[in-house]
């Protein structure tokens, strides 16, 4: 028990030393800074609490997160559904491939001006922007995953006469899931980018709006605290994603580990 504790402690030390050093360095270097662009870390941290109090949390952070969640989930469902459809039909896939490649290659932020034309600058616009940017990585990765389902697995399902719905549920979806998750991960970072950008473009609230607002009104410590918050948000969402992925793909990681060991 003592040895386990020690190992954990050592690992924690390894993990925390560099971040602690970096933060200390930032603190010391910036401490007597008089530059308005890089205020002392002390000041930034002091403004963090008051800046992101309950009011801003409900007014800016929560709406941002709601838009992101809704747009992301919409894209995930649509992307997986359409991806299954396209992936399972060779003719359809061959027909749509060039168009899909083009749509995927569009840098997602350029969707903002187009969608603003249709949907104005309200929540709908932001939701559509996020969803339409997240859609392509999910869709194309699902298509790839479906296409790559192992031939022997397919023949097994056929020889045991699994009907189409069972094949979809017990074979195609799980077999494609590692690839689908790769798409969902790409989509998550695109979704965060689009959440911020759509709010920077035209909005009256949201995290992106708040940060740009601080910058324009030269509230620099507040701006820095916003950058920190956004960074923290990216980190937390990525951790959450990893948690879900580890659970959902436990079999896949086990399989890979067992292959590597042999």
């Amino acid at each position: 028990m003592g040895r386990v504790m020690r190992r954990i402690l050592v690992n924690v030390m390894w993990a925390l030393t560099l971040p602690a050093l970096l933060i200390a360095a930032w603190w010391l270097v910036s401490d007597d800074s008089t530059s308005i662009y890089s205020p002392p870390l002390r000041t930034i941290l002091r403004t963090f609490g008051p800046t992101w109090d309950g009011d801003r949390l409900t007014h800016d952070v929560v709406p941002s997160l709601l838009r992101l969640t809704a747009g992301y989930l919409l894209a995930a469902v649509a992307g997986i559904g359409l991806g299954l459809l396209v992936g399972l039909h060779a003719q359809l896939r061959a027909t749509l491939e060039p168009v899909l490649e083009f749509l995927r290659a569009l840098p997602p932020p350029v969707l903002v001006p187009i969608i603003m034309l249709f949907a104005g600058i309200g929540d709908t616009m932001k939701l559509i922007v996020i969803a339409s940017g997240c859609l392509w990585p999910v869709l194309l990765n699902t298509v790839e995953g479906v296409r790559a389902v192992d031939q022997v697995m397919i023949e097994t399902a056929r020889s045991y006469r699994l009907p189409a719905p069972a094949r979809l549920r017990h074979l195609v979806l799980p077999a494609a899931s590692p690839q689908i998750f790769a798409g969902l991960r790409q989509a998550l970072s695109i979704g965060i980018i689009l959440m911020v950008i759509s709010e920077m473009f035209a909005a009256s609230n949201g995290l992106g709006f708040a940060i740009v607002d601080f910058q324009r009104s030269f509230a620099i410590p507040e701006m820095w605290s916003g950058i920190l918050l956004l960074g923290l948000l990216g980190f937390v969402l990525s951790m959450l994603f990893q948690l879900v992925e580890r659970r959902a793909l436990a079999w896949y990681h086990g399989l890979r580990a067992s292959r590597r060991a042999s």
């Binding site: 925390l16 970096l22 662009y37 970072s189 911020v196 910058q215 620099i220 916003g226 950058i227 990216g234």
Partner: peptide, 26 residues
């Protein structure tokens, strides 16, 4: 590598658009 692993894991998911205001100022 062990020393930097946690830092890399933390910095990597930070959305680069968070740096937009900083870029504007600089």
């Amino acid at each position: 590598r062990r020393f930097t692993a946690s830092t890399v894991e933390f910095l990597r998911p930070i959305p680069s658009v968070a740096l937009i205001p900083l870029a504007v100022l600089l």
